[in-house]
Write a protein that binds this DNA or RNA. Sequence first.
DNA 1: AAATTGTCGGTTGTCGACAATCGACAAACG
DNA 2: CGTTTGTCGATTGTCGACAACCGACAATTT
Lengths: 238, 238
Amino acid sequence: MADLQHEPHDDGLVLPPDTSPLGPIEQTPLKVQIADRLRTAIVTGKLKPGAVLVETALAERMNVSRAPIREAIQILENDGLVETVAYKGRRVKPLSVREVSETYDMRQIFEMRAVRRIIERKIPAGALWQPCQDMERAAQAGDREGLVAADERFHRMLITLADHQLLLQSWNSIYLRVHQIMALRNDRRVPLTDIAANHPPIIRALEEGDMDRAVGLIAEHTRSLESFDPATIAGAPQ
Amino acid sequence: MADLQHEPHDDGLVLPPDTSPLGPIEQTPLKVQIADRLRTAIVTGKLKPGAVLVETALAERMNVSRAPIREAIQILENDGLVETVAYKGRRVKPLSVREVSETYDMRQIFEMRAVRRIIERKIPAGALWQPCQDMERAAQAGDREGLVAADERFHRMLITLADHQLLLQSWNSIYLRVHQIMALRNDRRVPLTDIAANHPPIIRALEEGDMDRAVGLIAEHTRSLESFDPATIAGAPQ
DNA sequence: AAATTGTCGGTTGTCGACAATCGACAAACG
DNA sequence: CGTTTGTCGATTGTCGACAACCGACAATTT
C-alpha cells in the first residue's frame, strides 16, 4: 500500500478524542463511535484526501479489533468520503475539481427545491431569522468559525422547513463534502459581511411568497462560493 | 426477532441465482456478489418490505460465513433498502406513503436538473431516440417488461447525457427504490401506449433547446406515476 | 541484458467462536 | 392479583486467526 500515499503524513495525526460524557458506559456500538470520529477527522481536514486508512493500524491505535474499524470505514464509504480497492487499500477519497463543482451543484439543486416547497406549501419561514441574526453578530465580531456554523444552521433550517426527509438526508450527505472542501481550502478572502448580507433578502422573499425571486436568490447565493484553488484539495493522483 | 415480522414468508423464498459465467473462477468479493443478489431480490419484490434478514440464516443458506453477509447487508443499508436495529434485527425497510412520494419527488428533481444541463450546455440528445423507439415497439407488442426496461434506459440515458457523476449516482440510488415500488404495486392499469407517448415531445424540446417546454414536460411526466395503492406496499408496522 | 518466474511483505477478505444486548416469558415476591 | 426480578432464546457486536490477493523486487533463466 506504500505507493498509494506519496507523503507519509501518518505520524502526527491525532484523531478527535472520544468525548463520551461519563466514560465506561457506552451503549452506542463501537463502529458508530469510530465512524463518527473518522468522519469528523475527514471533514475537518485532519485526514486529507489520499490519506491511507489501514485497518490494522487504526485498530491498534484505538485498541479495538479490526471488525468495528472495517464497518466504520464502510459507513464512510457510503458517505462517499472513503474509497476501497480490494486487497490493496483504503484511502480518503481524493477530490477532483469536477467533484467539488458537482458537490456545490447538488447543494444548489437541493436548496432550490426546498425553497420551492416552502413557498408552494406556504410554510412559515420565520425560524430562519435566528441563525441569520447569529451570522450578523458573528460577522461583526470577526468570528469566522461562528459565522460558518451559523451559516450551516441557516441552510439546514431551510432544508428542514421543506419537510422532506429524503431531501434532508441527501442534503446532509452532500454537506459533509461541503464541510470537507471548506476545511481544505482555508480561504479567508471572502468578506464575512458579504456572506451574511445574502440571507435576509432570501427570508423576505420566502415570507412574501415570491417564488421567482426566492429561487433566484438562493440559486445565486449557493453559486457564489464555488470558486476555489485546485491545489488546496489535491489528493493522491488518479 | 420473531416479532418484527408478522407472517413467516420465510420458506418459499428463492434468491436470484449466482449467474457467474464459468463457475469456479470468481474474482469479485463474496460480499459484493451477495449484496447484488440481495439487492435484486429486494427491488424485484421477492424480499418484501418488513422481511427479516437474519445473518446466520442467510450465511447458512449461502454457505458462507456471517462476515460477507454482514457487509452485504450494510451495503444495502447504505442504499437505503435495509434498516438495522442493534442487537435486535435487520429487515427490509418498510415503505411509507410518504417515502414513496418523496422518492418520486427526488427523481423529478434529478431529471429536471438533467434536462436543464442538457439544454444549457447544448448537449446533443439524439441518443434518447433509441430507447424511445424500443418503448414504442414494446408497447405495440404488449410487452410490459420490455417497456419498463426501455423506459428505464430512456431515463438513465437522460441523466447520463447531463454528464454529472454525482447526479447520476444519486439518481441510481433513488431509482433502486423506484424499481422496488414498481415491483410491489403490480399496477397493470396504466395503458402502455400512454407512457410511451410521453417521450418523443421531451426529446424534441431538448433538441430545439426549448428550456421551459422541456422542463415542464419532464416535470409532468415524472409526476404522472405517483399514484399508488398504499396497501400494496405495506410492510411491518411502525 | 531481457524476460520470466519465484518469493515476500502488506492489505483486505473470510472464518468460527464468544460477548453483549434486547424482548419476552416465567418465577418469585408483596 | 399486580409487580418486580430472573432467566432464556434470539440476534447482532466484537474478537483473533488464517486465507486470498496484489504489487514489487529478487532470483533465475534464456
